[in-house]
């Protein structure tokens, strides 16, 4: 019955062919360091799931942000777990993305024909950094407030356009409700959209070109 339904759907979707292309690829003999990209993807999915759950209670305004985060952590069943996973997952994202990048550098995997995969990877690193920077403000505690004050201040030392960048980031001269709202908007809409698009291209290229082999001594 299930097999019949599967066949019926496959006749229309052709999903078995897609499945084979993605998961039953021939891969060269590689080592565990080649799983770092998959590990990053896994944590990214975890961040999406826990992040969506957090928005159910979180409110991005100065009079509610801190209290709603405390409410999640102390009053909601498993709230500490969901927030904890998102918190530690954020650090894991940065670490894994960087280590994955180092692996690609040291094994020379960025070379022809994988230059575009590398480029999307560089953009993904920027997106991950953006997630970290915008997400850090959202709990709206002292650490968040001052870290963002300093972080946006750093942008302002850029020559000529610095002050203007600071004003755009903060939504004005000061760090206010406007800043919190736009950081939230960037964190939950702009960056996730960019992440999904880039991950899709990144994955498509990996499936299409295949992963690189460990370089041989004579190469």
């Amino acid at each position: 019955m299930v097999a019949q339904l599967g066949n019926w759907l496959d006749e229309r979707f052709g999903w078995r062919r897609v499945w084979e292309l993605i998961f039953l690829r021939k891969i060269p003999k590689v080592n565990w360091l080649y799983t770092l990209g998959s590990a990053t993807l896994f944590v990214a999915i975890l961040q999406i799931v826990t992040g969506i759950l957090l928005t159910i209670y979180y409110v991005p305004t100065p009079d509610h942000a801190y209290d709603s985060v405390q409410y999640i952590s102390t009053q909601i069943p498993a709230g500490w777990l969901i927030r904890g996973l998102h918190h530690w997952g954020a650090s894991a994202m940065v670490v894994l993305t960087l280590v994955h990048m180092l692996r690609v550098i040291f094994y020379g995997s960025y070379k022809y024909p994988r230059e575009v995969t590398w480029l999307t990877g560089v953009l993904l690193l920027l997106v991950v950094t953006g997630f970290g920077f915008t997400g850090y403000l959202l709990p709206w505690d002292q650490k968040a407030y001052w870290a963002t004050t300093v972080g946006t201040r750093i942008a302002s030392v850029a020559p000529v356009v610095g002050e203007w960048i600071l004003r755009v980031m903060r939504g004005g001269q000061e760090l206010t409700a406007v800043t919190l709202a736009r950081f939230f908007g960037v964190h939950v809409w702009v960056l996730p959209a960019a992440l999904l698009l880039l991950v899709f291209i990144h994955m498509y290229l990996i499936v299409r070109i295949g992963i690189s082999a460990v370089p041989k001594r004579e190469e």
Binding site: L46, L53, A78, G79, L81
Partner: peptide
């Protein structure tokens, strides 16, 4: 491990 806490988290209040 994620779905069970997630359900508790959503229906908790």
């Amino acid at each position: 491990g994620l779905a069970i806490p997630a359900v508790a988290y959503i229906i908790g209040p």
